[in-house]
Write a protein that binds this DNA or RNA. Structure first.
Lengths: 350, 350
DNA sequence: GTCCTATTGGACACCGGTGTCATGCAGCAT
DNA sequence: ATGCTGCATGACACCGGTGTCCAATAGGAC
């Protein structure tokens, strides 16, 4: 009785009870089949699986979540970082989640607020999240990682350096990548190279700066403090930071900007000052956002595999679910590539 | 018994039973308080509410979802459209959802696949979604809207024209906005104006084209077919489409590109041909993405209030939940603004 | 004071899964 | 034949809420 609404909705709304009845077994046995319990008779399993396949039955996630105390949701926690990165990350994670029972819930937070911690705790505990992916700079917060651990919430941190156990970390080697980029500038003949650094408190900013300094040190090039300008990873900050570099005499012949937005700012500022790129100024950015190929000249940059890293992060999370130890072999470290475009040339003979 | 794990996890994991016991009422009464049932004694309500406040109790969403057959999740369904738009939309929706019990689940789909429909159906029925927001071009699919209706899933469609009841629609008036932009070009003295149209099958492309044609018609300017080039809303398509316009004699003195990506392509192509912008060619795009201010010269464009529209869409969805008819007054139509930047100037005297 | 009705609160089943433990049964040593 | 062991399965409670329906209580009409 009270089951006559077969015709109303499109979906027959099968439950585990229906399957159990059809297979003439208990619902618990069906549950065992779904969860691949090893202590099942082969015949029984086949019989139930056949019926599940025929009927297209899918277990109700809400009921599972309630019974298990854990949802099949992955959270993506981020603060502001650049739009392209968030989107690429989403894409990578979703690729990994595609075809699984997991869904992605996104959660921007305000790292400045003193409620972030409570906010995130509420988020993961209320929703009984299966796990979360943390994007920088949230991923650099050790207290946050500790809290998630206490809450029994899995997590993977994206970063520019390995800050945690490999199982919790997906990182790109920014330092080495930047060092490579700067070595390239040096090989082109540049000696006065400016840096537009990222904001304090961002690990990526620190790593990139260290890579920059390292390459210069290797080459025995001294680095006066004046060649380093502070930026905020925004176009505007790149614009104003480059002004201070342009005012130097002699002017730097090349500038490494810690991300593409700021590199675009440098290019824009150069254009306003009538400084020809790349003839009078070479520029390299970081991220390989689409922007780099929309401006003129196209910007050389460092490409890091965001989508692949997002995919790896998600696989790490759900891999620990499947628990097949051998499967959880997602790498923790990804390497970046220098992309050479027209914004770099040898310096003019001065 | 079996409740001694108070100290292990951070969270005491309060349930409705705990609250009921503390308030010395039945769990059903607590449930009534939570759901603001009107037939409750004022004293009882106050007593229970006080305890809820003190303890910080929050109902378990999984249990609610199971019992209600409906989850407190909003889905965002989109195909490919441009990254900036997706992100701004997410931002708007999340702003509206902030502080509510709703979370946002994102779901990219492939509109080309013949499984989209099943995919989305599975998504909304399995997760028992409260409602979904559809981004163009998915939002233009009437069959999809019908299916969602059948599944009892609320939805709001984002679009460039009103395609549905206002309660299901949040639209920008692209046609009029483009007409305005083109009128501006005409007022500047342009007569040979090229159009780079968007892809067939996108309503926004059609609306923008109609707006373009309308402005020319109003001004009594004829529009030879050769002045219209097909684009795909991508930078590359803008690049190649503009080539064909540049080959015309006489060359158009202005081009309206149906989005910013393509406008950037026009700018890039002009640069490669040595055509000066805006002296020899004016350009207007559409969307007001950050890109427009990163290139040189900055692009004039049409700004539509994506974030506000996203917010409105979400409020429409959850407004129907609260059911307070007067609250659901989110507008369905948003207007756009012409943003004037350096990419437009009067045509050179020829 | 009695009866009727409206209001308020509670008992209970239910949503659809999973965990625990008991049970049935076959295979083996004794 | 008996008892023990181990495997496959089932019965039942439980996760934490909500809907239904009924009981208790209070207030008003008579």
């Amino acid at each position: 009785m009270a089951k006559q609404n077969q015709d109303e909705g499109q979906a027959p709304k099968l439950t585990i009870n229906d399957i159990a009845r059809m297979a003439d077994v208990s619902k618990k046995t069906v549950s065992r089949v779904i969860n691949r319990s090893p202590l099942l008779n082969r015949e029984t399993r086949d019989k139930v699986e056949a019926i599940i396949r025929e009927t297209g039955y899918v277990p109700n996630p809400q009921a599972r979540a309630l019974a298990l105390g854990r949802n099949f949701l992955i959270g993506l926690v981020y603060d502001n970082p650049n739009a392209q990165m968030i989107l690429s990350m989403q894409r990578g994670i979703l690729e990994a989640l595609h075809g699984t029972e997991f869904e992605l819930v996104i959660r921007p937070v305000d790292r400045g607020s003193n409620l972030v911690m409570d906010d995130i705790r509420g988020f993961v505990t209320r929703q009984r999240l299966f796990g979360v992916v943390l994007l920088p700079p949230m991923s650099e917060n050790d207290a946050l990682a500790r809290m998630l651990d206490e809450q029994g919430c899995r997590y993977v941190r994206m970063g520019s350096a390995v800050l945690d156990d490999p199982e919790h970390m997906v990182a790109s080697n920014d330092k080495e990548a930047v060092a490579d980029a700067v070595r390239y500038l040096i090989a082109q003949g540049h000696r006065r190279i400016g840096l537009i650094a990222g904001p304090h408190g961002f690990r990526s900013a620190q790593e990139r700066r260290e890579g920059f300094e390292q390459a210069l040190t290797e080459a025995g090039i001294s680095l006066p403090r004046s060649l380093i300008a502070d930026g905020q990873y925004t176009f505007e900050s790149g614009l104003s930071a480059s002004e201070s570099l342009f005012d130097l005499t002699p002017r730097p012949t090349a500038i490494f900007a810690s991300n593409d937005e700021m590199a675009a700012g440098v290019l824009y500022a150069a254009r306003m000052r009538g400084i020809a790129v790349p003839e009078e100024l070479s520029i390299i950015g970081f991220d390989d956002t689409p922007l780099t190929t929309r401006v003129w000249p196209p910007l050389s940059t460092v490409r890091w595999p965001i989508v692949a890293m997002g995919r790896a992060a998600a696989l790490k999370l759900i891999g620990t679910a499947i628990g097949e130890g051998s499967e959880v072999n997602e790498p923790s470290m990804f390497s970046s590539t220098l992309i050479r475009r027209a914004s770099v040339a040898p310096p003019a003979i001065s």
